[in-house]
Computed example of a mutant assay.
Amino acid sequence: MDYKLEYMERLFAKISKKKTESYVISRIWHQLNDDRVKFVVQQYIRRTHDKYALADLYLPQLNILIEINEPFHKNNVEVDKIRNEEIINTTHAQLLVVDCDNDIQEIHRQISIIVWAIKLTIQQLGEKFQAWDDVSTLSVEYHRNKGYLKVEDNECLRTTEDVAAIFGTVAKHRGFLRASGAAIPNKKNEIVWWPNTEHHLWHNELSEDGMFIYEYPKINEKREAHLNQWLSAPEETRITFLRYKDDLGFCFYRFVGVFKLNKEKSIKENKCVWERISNTYQLKK
Rank of each mutant, 00 (worst) to 15 (best):
M8F: 05
K18G: 06
Y23T: 07
V24L: 03
S26D: 12
W29R: 14
H30T: 15
K38L: 07
V40C: 01
D50F: 10
D50Y: 14
D56P: 04
I66K: 01
E67S: 07
F72W: 07
E85H: 09
T90A: 14
L96N: 02
D103V: 10
W116P: 09
A117M: 12
I118M: 00
Q124G: 02
E127F: 09
Q130F: 02
W132Y: 11
W132E: 02
W132K: 04
L138C: 01
S139E: 01
Y142H: 14
L149D: 03
E155V: 15
T160Y: 10
T160A: 14
V163I: 08
G168D: 03
V170G: 07
K172P: 08
G175Y: 04
I184Q: 00
K188S: 11
I191L: 09
P195G: 06
N196F: 08
E198W: 10
H199N: 09
L201N: 14
N204C: 11
N204V: 04
L206K: 05
M211D: 13
P217W: 05
I219N: 15
I219W: 06
I219K: 12
N220Q: 15
E221M: 13
E221V: 15
A225Y: 05
H226R: 13
L227Q: 07
L227P: 01
Q229I: 01
L231K: 06
T237C: 10
R238W: 00
I239F: 06
K245R: 14
G249T: 05
R254V: 11
G257D: 04
K265H: 08
I267L: 09
E269S: 12
V273S: 08
V273E: 05
V273T: 06
W274M: 01
E275N: 10
R276P: 07
R276L: 03
